[in-house]
């Protein structure tokens, strides 16, 4: 058996093991890699930066724990950015396991806001984030398309009360906030076809400024909506999250994982090259 034949019959478990070893080594090697920022992520950041204090940002936390690796860092970065900029955060979870995700982010970001921080050279004093004043969590309802349409008429139709049972009419932040007309920006963080519903039933119907935070698997499919102006920005996968953290100067789990990404990709590219060389050389040998 030649070297090329061995390449072609290499047990895939050796590849898994090698990749795992590379990931662990690069994770514990605490070096930094540069993170270039794309225009589609920068436009999301710039949009939030441009909003006047007190504006309402709608954050759709429409993902389950299976996608938290990519989408949780985005949610953390955007939510903290909104709170530091003193924007109101209105949130709903249209995925059945989303409420758990949303509550975890609120708990951690509210804790983080209790500390003074400096981001991009700007000092942000400590702030107590108050439920109902600084943020509202509407909770989960099934049939996301109908919920998106319903919220366009009035948030009180699908959500008469918030996730904790407080009627929306008695929540200070919701005074005068009826539908998307009072929302300055919608950012949906999603791992499924809820993104399609937000585009078709939300943005196209009510014509609001919208961006998507997507898992890597989905990201490429949504670039046409960026080109058509239906979306103002896209954050794709862990790289998108890392770019947002870079812009917000708030390093988190995404930036921490990017050096692993780089080396894992190099390993995969190396194996693709090896497999192709093996394949073509074996074919040439068979031809001879």
């Amino acid at each position: 058996m030649t070297l090329f034949d061995k390449m072609m019959t290499l047990d895939r478990r050796w590849i898994f093991l090698f990749l795992a070893v590379v990931c662990f080594i690069t994770y514990y090697g605490k070096f930094q890699i540069p993170i270039p920022v794309n225009s589609e992520v920068r436009s999301v950041y710039n949009k939030i930066e441009s909003l006047p204090e007190g504006s309402i940002v709608f954050l759709g936390i429409d993902y389950d724990p299976s996608s938290q690796a990519e989408l949780h860092p985005m949610t953390y970065a955007i939510m903290e950015h909104c709170f530091r900029r003193k924007l109101g955060v209105l949130t709903a979870a249209l995925s059945q396991n989303g409420p758990g995700m949303a509550e975890q982010v609120f708990m951690d970001v509210v804790d983080s806001m209790k500390l003074p921080r400096e981001y991009n050279g700007v000092e942000y004093p400590a702030r107590d984030i108050v439920k109902g004043v600084d943020y509202v969590f509407l909770g989960y309802k099934p049939y996301f398309s109908l919920i998106i349409l319903g919220m366009g008429q009035n948030f009180r139709i699908p959500f008469p009360a918030d996730y904790y049972g407080t009627p929306l009419d008695s929540i200070p932040m919701m005074q005068g906030v009826n539908n998307y007309d009072q929302v300055a920006f919608v950012c949906d963080l999603t791992s499924g076809n809820i993104a399609d519903a937000w585009i078709s039933y939300g943005q196209s119907r009510f014509n609001f400024d919208m961006a998507l935070g997507l898992t890597g698997v989905m990201a490429a499919d949504y670039y046409p909506f960026l080109n058509s102006g239906q979306l103002i920005g896209i954050m794709g996968g862990l790289f998108g999250a890392a770019q947002y953290e870079q812009l917000a100067d708030n390093a988190g789990l995404a930036k921490d994982g990017m050096r692993v990404q780089v080396f894992a990709h190099l390993v995969i590219i190396l194996f693709i090259i090896i497999a192709n060389v093996g394949f073509f050389m074996s074919r040439r040998k068979q031809g001879n």
């Binding site: 690796a69 898992t215 890597g216 794709g236 789990l253 921490d256 994982g257 990404q261």
Partner: peptide
């Protein structure tokens, strides 16, 4: 090229899941 882009993003997504587990274990 479009499929290749999707494949690249998918690889990133799968590695991200593993990174998240490493972070959790750490």
């Amino acid at each position: 090229i479009g499929f290749g882009t999707s494949f690249g993003f998918t690889v990133m997504a799968r590695i991200s899941l593993f990174i998240n587990r490493i972070q959790s274990m750490e």
